[in-house]
Amino acid sequence: MDAPIRRKKNTRRPARKSAPTPGRRKTPGIFRSRLRPLDAWLLHHLHVLVFSLGQLSRTPFPTLMTAAVIGIALALPSGLYLLLDNARQLSQSWDDTVRISVFLNIDVSDVQAQQLATKLQQRSEIQQVQVISRAKALAEYQQLSGFSKALETLDGNPLPAVLVVQPQLNPELGASQNSQVLLALLQALPEVDIAQFDMRWLKRLLAIMEIIHRSVLVLAALLGLAVLLITGNTIRLSIQNRRQEIEINKLFGATDAFIRRPFLYAGLWYGLFGAVIAWSLVQLAFALLQNPVQKLSVLYQSHYQLSVFSYQDVFLLLATGVVLGLAGAWLAVSRHLQEIQPR
C-alpha cells in the first residue's frame, strides 16, 4: 500500500515545483493547477450552464411539458400583442388618409364646384381636393346602389357635387386637431351644405383598440406571473428530488451560491425553451392566418401583409422568458434551499 502513496506524492511534486519558477509566472491563470477565483468562477458558470442543460435533457418529456406550458403562457400575450400591432399599423395607414367629405349645396354647379376646389387647393392646410361632379356622383350611385331604375324616373340629378378634401397634416398639431379646425372652416363656406369626416368610425376603432391593448397588458402580466410560478414550482420539485446531492455538496464545502447555480440555470433554460416554443407557436399561428388575411386584403384592393416578429421582438420575447425563468427559479431556490441542511 506504500507504493500508491509515493506515486501520489510524485504526481503532485512537479506542479508545486514549477509554480515559483519565473518562466512560468506569466502563464495565464487557466493553466495553473488551482484556478484564479475569477477564472474558476467563469469556468464553473459555463460548466453549470451546460451541466444543467444536460440534466434537463436526461428527462426530456417532463422538461418539454414544462417548457410547453411556459411557451403557451408566453405565446398568448405575445401573439395578441402582435395581432394588435398589426391592427394598429393598418389603422395608422388609414389615419393618414383621414378625409373630409364636403357636400355642396344642390344649386352649386359642377363648374362652381371646380372653382371652389381650385381655391381650396391653394390653402396650406389642404393637401389635395378631389371633385366628384354631380354627374359622376350620379353615375357612381347608379352603379353601386342598384337604384338605377328609380333614379331614371327622377327629373333631374338629385345628388350634389362633393369635394373630397385631404388635409395637410401639420406635425406640430395632432392629426385630429388639424382636421377639426379645417372641418369648421369648410363648414362655414357659403357653398357648403355639410362637411363631415369620413372616418369617425376609425376613432371609435382606435378607442376600442386602446381598451384591447390594456387588456393584453393585463393578460400579459397575469400570464407572466403564471410563468414565474410554473418555473418556481418545477424548480422546487427538482430541489426536493436532489436533496441528497445538495446535502453532500454542502458537506464538502459548497457555498450556497454554488448550490443555487444549477437550479437558477435550469430556470433560465426553462424560460428560454418556453420563449422559443412561444415564438414558434405565434409564428405558426400567423403563418396560418397569412393566407386568409391576404384574401381579405385583396378584397379591399390592398396589399396588406401581416407583419410578424421583428428581430427586436424576438429578442424581447426570449429575454422575457429568460428573466421570468430565472426569477421563478430564484424564488424557489431562496425559499427552499435554506431548509436543506446536511444530516
Binding site: I30, S33, R34, L35, A254
Partner: peptide, 16 residues
Amino acid sequence: ALPLVIAGYRHQDIRR
C-alpha cells in the same frame, strides 16, 4: 471529483 469541483480546480487537475 465532487470536492474538487466545489473547490474550483481545473479540469485536468481534477482528472489527475
